[in-house]
Structure formats: C-alpha cells, structure tokens
Design a protein around this nucleic acid. Structure first.
Length: 533
RNA sequence: GGUUCCGUAGCUCAACUGGAUAGAGCAACUGCCUUCUAAGCAGUAGGUUUCGCGUUCGAGCCGCGACGGGACCA
C-alpha cells in the first residue's frame, strides 16, 4: 500500500476484507468538522420542488388523543428531517371541519348545552365540543333502546332515532348554506381551533398551510368527469361512477355516488391535483393511519389511470394504531387517552423526579417549569418516535413512561452533563481556548475516543438514511447510541485534567461536538436540550 | 372469501436493506458517588428470531405454506 493512501492496514477474516483507516485521517476529518461546523450532507438528490408533508388532519368534533399524538409527532419529525437533509418542505394540515360528526356535536349542544361556552364552563374548546359528541351518543343510544322497546328491529331503530335524523337534517342545512346552521358551525369550530392551537403549541409543532374540507370537499367532481371522458372510469345504471382496479389486484371502487355527492376519494383526487397545481410538489407525503392503506392504493392507481405522471409521488406514510391494555380507543365512548392530559401528566412526572433529585433548587419557577416541560415532553416524544411506525404500540397509562435507560431524558441528561464539563473546562485558563486550538495530528486517541469520533462523523449518513426512509426512529436510536457512548467515555476518561492540557483540549472538543450533534438530532424529533437538569 | 401489515429475551424495542459471535433498555440480582452531574457506569442472568420447507457460500431479513394478532375491501 502506498503511504498516501487513506488506509493504514488491512486483514482478511472469514472472507471479509477489513481496511483500517489511518489515524491522521480521522483526526483531520474531525478537525475540519469541529472548526467549520456540521458536515455538509452529501445529498444524492436534493429536491428543488417542495415536499409536502400532510399530518395531524383532525376532525373538529373532539379533542386530540394519543393516536393523533403519534401522527403529529411523526409528521413533524419527518418534515424536520427532510428539511435538515436539504429539501424544501411544507407542512400542511387538512382539517376535517364538516360532515355528520360535527353536526352530532352541534345537535347535542343545542339540546343539552344550555348555551354553555368555553368561557362559561372554563373548559378548553375542543374538550367542550368533544363532550357534546359523547353526549350525542348517549342520547342516540337511549333513543334506540326506546324504539327497540316499542318493537322496532335494532337496525331500523338506528336509522330512525330522532336525534340521528336531526343530525342528518342539520348536515343538509349546512350544505344548503343555511345562515343559522353556518353560524353555529363557525362558533363551535372556532372553539375547537382555539383548543387545537394550544395543544399544538404545547407539543411544539407548526404548519405552513391549513386546508379545510369545507373548502375542498366539492373538489374532484370534474376529475371524475375527466375519467369518464377518457374512458378509465365507468358509470353504473344508477348514475354512480366507479373505477375498475381488478387488473391491479384490487376491486371496483366507488368514486361518486348516484345522487352526485362525493365520497372521500372524490375530494382526495381533487385535493391532490389542487396541491400539484399550487406547488408542483416532488412528493406529497400523507401521514395517515394504516387503516387507510387501501384508500391510498386506490387513490394512487386512480391518478395513474387518469394519466397524471406524478401519481407515484403520492406517498402514504402509514403507521399502526396505538392500543390500550383495555383494547381500542373510542372517542364516542370516552375510552381515550387525551393528548393534553397525557402531556400534562408527563410534565408533572418530570417535575416530581427533578425535585426528588434536587439538582436545580436554585432555578426560579419559570426556569424550572421550562425544564419540566422539556423533560416530560422529551420522554413522551422519544417513547413514541423510537418505534418503527408500522408496528402497533401498546400504551399502558398505569405504567408511566420511563425516565431512565433508553429514553428521552437519558439523552437530555447526557447533554446537560456535557455542558457541565465544558463549563468547568472554560474556567481553566490553559484550556479556555479549546475551541480555536488546532488538533495535533499525532494525537494518540484511545478506543473510546475513536468510537465517539466515528459516531459523530456518521451524523450526515444517519440523517440521509432517515430522510430516505422517512424514519425518525433512525435518528432516535442514533441519539441514544451516541449518548451511551459518551457516557462510557466520560466514565473512563477524565476530561478536564490540569496536568495534561493537550488531552483535555481534545476531549473538550470531542465533548462539544457530541453535545452539538445530540442537540441537533433531538431537535429533529421535536425535542429540546437543557443546560442543566 | 380477498388484500395487506405485524410476530425477535418475561416486557418495550434494535439489527446499517442478504453478511462476521442477533444487540439495547426495563424488570431481577451484584458492585461503583470525598474526583468533571449516579436521570450515570460496570457486571450476572435471560434466545431453537412463532413453526415447517425452500432459494445460496451465507437467512431474523428473500419465496412458499401453516399458526397467532391487527387493519382494510366485497
């Protein structure tokens, strides 16, 4: 081997060729990194056109719960990862603000609400509206029972229950633009939005653009006509429009009802095309639960049949449901883990643990509360994001989320620990300038230092993989491994040692780089890091 | 009936797209705070990767078939 080659030695074990990279090369690469900041990502295909990430997409008849939490954290994190990887990204939210579900809340509020408002009740708006959604179901069930009592078959009773008929009548009025109905609808939706906004704010997520189904639900009808003209859709005798996907291993699928009203697919066709016209997206990523897998397959194939060449840029980022030990969550039965409650419980838990440890007794209450929030939400976010989205999650509220081991607070703790060492190093005159001191290329680093350097320098690679796979879990695991490696290094090596300034400076540089990468990686998961904890 | 996702330690999860002796955390047990933060570190124990067959130098990963769990489409 030539001496200028980057490889210092090699060996062969069990058919594997092992190359050993020269030590100087590691040091010079690390030197470049730590003096000029984060390595530039060697992106293969930096996109010029925006990637749209649609996430959250709530219904306005009830507050957000644990299932939404998984959706929102995933969507936000994927968007941040794509941004960090150099893509232009737009986060969008399609709010389902119309339909029978919201009419149910409205009817129940009219019947049983006595004019209650968020102000008068002191309830968060989304919780108040959700309360009447549950109320609707109670009334509905008692009406069904009464009809069955009188001898109606249950199926008929479900159709004939007065409150259900009223809800349907209200939907018709809404569609006919009835002034009074629209006014009530706007009022109750505004309560819900105020509630959602405070939940989003607590979670620390944001959106670049909001879409509302009340404005998009009529889109798509002309696309259906276009499909008929092109002969890729067909009409049945009752006037309904269908697409035949048996050639793709699926079934025939309804696109427009006989009475001319839309189904979800109709508006999704229209909305996708609208967004393409607006943005020319290079990808449209839908963060939606896996119960919609079939729906998105149909959507893509319908677009393909229509001849839109970007049909394959529609991507369904599918995730599995979150289950409770008691089974599925059902909003209308009130068996859900509410997102606000869960976040607040986590913050309280963080506060309890922090107080027990007593390390920040000198913090004022603002500082302390910021920290509790950081840690509580960090624990929750990490817990959810470290899991592969396709796997079902079992969430046991009785066993609270851990703060030790492979958790968010463990990584946050490691960051705080590093900052603490660096603060100490900065007080020693001979080391205070460690940031600008160049690394000695002949520095004899040990195994732990070597391992840390390698991990730090692999950040761009991890990020690129995470971006390609739309996978926050990759970054979560990377952060954990890095923190773990740092703690091992920390335990075995004194960092600030007055007797060995040269080594101390190198270790301070290494620590600083580690903290930077941890902070950056956690930010991609929507997490913050504390200077002390 | 059809399609699809999942099945790895008691529990929660990894395994760099088919590579070397399947790794972490929790729980259990044992050590380490007079030294830079013990929300930490070190160690013990825990596995026929649900089962079977196949593909090949090599399979947790690919194929086929069971079994179990979820979701969706008739």
């Amino acid at each position: 081997m030539e001496s200028s080659a980057p490889v210092s030695s090699f060996n062969v074990v069990k058919g594997f060729l092992n190359l050993v990279v020269k030590r100087e090369l590691w040091l010079s690469t690390f030197q470049t990194f730590s003096s000029s900041g984060y390595p530039v990502l060697p992106l293969n295909n930096p996109s010029e056109k925006p990637l749209l990430v649609e996430y959250s997409s709530p219904n306005t008849n009830k507050p957000l719960h644990l299932g939404h939490l998984r959706n929102i954290l995933l969507g936000y994190s994927v968007a941040e990862i794509l941004k960090a990887a150099g893509h232009p990204v737009k986060k969008v939210n399609l709010v389902n603000d119309r339909g029978i579900h919201i009419c149910k809340s409205m009817i129940a509020w009219l019947k049983a609400g006595n004019g209650e408002t968020p102000e008068s009740s002191g309830m968060k708006g989304d919780h108040l509206v959700g309360k009447y959604y549950v109320e609707f179901d109670k009334i509905y069930k008692s009406e069904i029972a009464a009809l069955v009592e009188k001898g109606q078959p249950e199926d008929d009773a479900k159709k004939n229950a007065p409150i259900m008929l009223e809800a349907q009548e209200m939907l018709r009025k809404w569609e006919a633009n009835d002034a009074e109905t629209i006014k009530l609808w706007e009022t109750m939706n505004s309560w819900v939005y105020a509630g959602f906004n405070s939940t989003y704010a607590l979670m620390g997520v944001d959106f670049d653009k909001m879409y509302y189904e009340s404005q998009t639900y009529l889109l798509g009808k002309e696309i259906v006509q276009e499909g008929l003209d092109k002969g890729v859709f067909y009409k049945k005798d009752d006037g309904s429009v269908w697409v035949d996907l048996t050639g793709d291993g699926l079934d025939h699928k309804l696109l427009l009802r006989g009475d001319g009203t839309s189904v979800y697919l109709t508006q999704d066709l229209g909305t996708a095309r609208l967004r393409y016209q607006e943005t020319g997206f290079s990808k449209l990523i839908y963060v939606v639960g896996n119960e919609q897998d079939y729906h998105f397959k149909v959507l893509k194939l319908a677009m393909k049949k229509l001849g839109y060449e970007w049909w394959n840029d529609l991507f369904h980022l599918s995730y599995a449901m979150v289950d409770l030990p008691s089974g599925k969550m059902k909003s209308r039965e009130g068996t859900v883990v509410d997102a606000d409650d869960l976040m607040n419980e986590m913050i309280t838990e963080a506060s309890t643990i922090t107080k027990e440890l007593g390390k920040i007794d000198d913090f004022d209450s603002d500082e302390a509360n910021r920290l509790y929030k950081m840690l509580g939400l960090g624990a929750l976010k990490y817990y959810i994001l470290k899991v592969d989205p396709e796997k079902r999650m079992l969430f046991n509220p009785a066993e609270s989320i851990d703060f030790n081991g492979n958790t968010g607070p463990f990584i946050q703790y490691t960051y705080a620990r590093i900052r603490s060492v660096i603060r100490k190093g900065a007080t020693i005159e001979s080391m205070a300038g460690y940031k600008t001191t160049a690394i000695d290329v002949n520095f004899a680093f040990n195994e732990k230092e070597y391992g840390l350097m390698k991990m730090i320098l692999s950040y761009p690679y991890e990020l690129e993989t995470a971006a390609e796979k739309f996978s926050p879990a990759i970054m979560a695991i990377y952060a954990f491994e890095l923190a773990k490696n740092y703690n091992q290094f920390y335990h075995e090596n004194p960092i600030v040692d007055k007797a060995d300034v040269n080594t101390s400076i190198f270790r301070l540089k290494l620590s600083e780089a580690c903290a930077d990468i941890l902070s950056k990686t956690l930010a991609l998961l929507g997490m913050q890091v504390p200077e002390r904890m």
